[in-house]
Design a binder for these strands. Structure first.
Length: 339
RNA sequence: CGCGGGGUGGAGGAAUGGCACCUCGUCAGGCUCAUAAUCUGAAGGUCCCGGUUCGAAUCCGGGCCCCGCAA
């Protein structure tokens, strides 16, 4: 019986670069014959620009799965990938959080065999930052979509969708973790059913498609550092969502001076001590809303410093503004005059 | 050796060659029905090694560690 199953095992390839891919790889490897991993070349990383291999490559090495690393899906890299896929007689290619756009030649060579996991309920939030946008917009539900890869970004027919009810305190980091886990739990079943022709493909409704364009670079769906600047004119809840959406990267930030006497902030008014440059950036790692709907910063990070919590910030960088009773100031001024 | 910033009691920060200081915390005591409130007092510190100097947190050399940029 085992032997029969061996023969029927689907041959699957995986394209991905994210560190979070490992649970998916484990599942694929358990259930199918994982014939190939395609991931990014080693990248220079960290302060000393050391070469680092992706987690996918590391995993493939330790699990004796064949892998190919590429710098982009074109030219000789693309030829290499297509050749390897052909050699291994692949049934499906699963793409998840890959750094590269799947080019037309690859889609044409393996029609209906390229399957992508997208981290939103398509056709909402097509593009590179669906999770961040779900948080930014304060959605109460998001999820994952398993769909066929077409030439247009995230536009192919839907095989399966799984919703996820948001608690309202997710960061992009924690939400990505949850959604990857959800994907890992479901991907093998979807692939199996698809291979047996049990899935009805659902075309996406183009009219309701939305994209995750960057506010500062509207031609791109990626996240940029400038996107993460806090606009204090925004309502406090919008700012709070922004802080969660841009964690763990790039982290929401503001110029230090904007924290002074800021009516949107919870607690006492203050001015900055002279030991901090008012034009330096302060990164806001986490915050919440207090009962008056004001922003209560939890952890933050001045330039060149470690991340600290709000109490530590007050101890080291802040002078409270004493709120004088109305009229007292005039009284004092008048007294000075009469003296 | 990719580029820049930094390392000061338990935490966060001042002090640029001359008595190591501030806020918070800790401990003891006072006040209090009580307290995270308040008052008094105390303990505890310059990342490591070497150099310059009458004198180094501060200047110089080496090391370790942290942060940002970059990817």
């Amino acid at each position: 019986m085992d032997e029969v199953n061996e023969h029927k095992k689907l041959k699957v390839a995986f394209f991905g670069t994210s560190d979070r891919s490992i649970p998916i790889l484990e599942k694929l490897n358990e259930t199918f014959e994982l014939v190939l991993c395609v991931t990014k070349n080693d990248v220079k990383v960290g302060r000393h620009q050391k070469l680092k291999e992706t987690e996918v490559k590391k995993w493939a090495k330790t699990n004796n799965v064949k892998y190919v690393t590429i710098s982009g899906l074109k030219g000789t890299d693309l030829e290499k990938v297509i050749e390897q896929l052909n050699n291994s007689n692949v049934d499906f290619v699963l793409v998840a959080d890959f750094s590269f756009i799947i080019p037309a030649p690859l889609i044409e060579t393996f029609p209906k065999k390229l399957i992508n996991i997208h981290f939103s309920l398509l056709p909402k939030y097509r593009g590179a930052s669906p999770v961040q946008h779900a948080i930014l917009n304060g959605d109460s539900i998001t999820g994952i979509t398993i769909h066929l890869v077409e030439k247009r970004m995230d536009s192919g027919d839907i095989l399966h969708q799984i919703g996820y009810k948001m608690a309202g305190n997710e960061t992009s980091g924690t939400l990505y973790d949850l959604l990857f886990k959800l994907a890992a739990e479901n991907i093998t079943e979807v692939l199996e059913r698809y291979s047996q022709g049990q899935i009805t493909q659902i075309p996406q409704d183009e009219d309701s498609a939305t994209y995750t364009y960057s506010p500062t670079q509207p031609q791109s769906t990626f996240i940029f550092k400038e996107d993460a600047e806090i606009k204090w004119k925004s309502p406090a809840d919008v700012i709070e969502r922004k802080i969660r959406a841009y964690n763990p990267w790039p982290i929401a930030w503001t110029l230090a001076e904007y924290l002074e006497k800021n009516p949107k902030l919870s607690g006492r008014n203050f001015i900055l001590r002279s030991n901090i440059n008012k034009e330096s950036k302060i990164r806001i790692h986490s915050a919440e809303l207090d009962d008056q709907n004001k922003l209560k910063i939890r952890t933050l990070q001045p330039e060149g410093r470690n991340k600290i919590n709000w109490e530590e910030f007050e101890n080291g960088y802040v002078l409270p503004v004493i709120q004088e009773p109305k009229g007292l100031k005039d009284k004092l001024l008048n007294r000075d005059k009469t003296d």
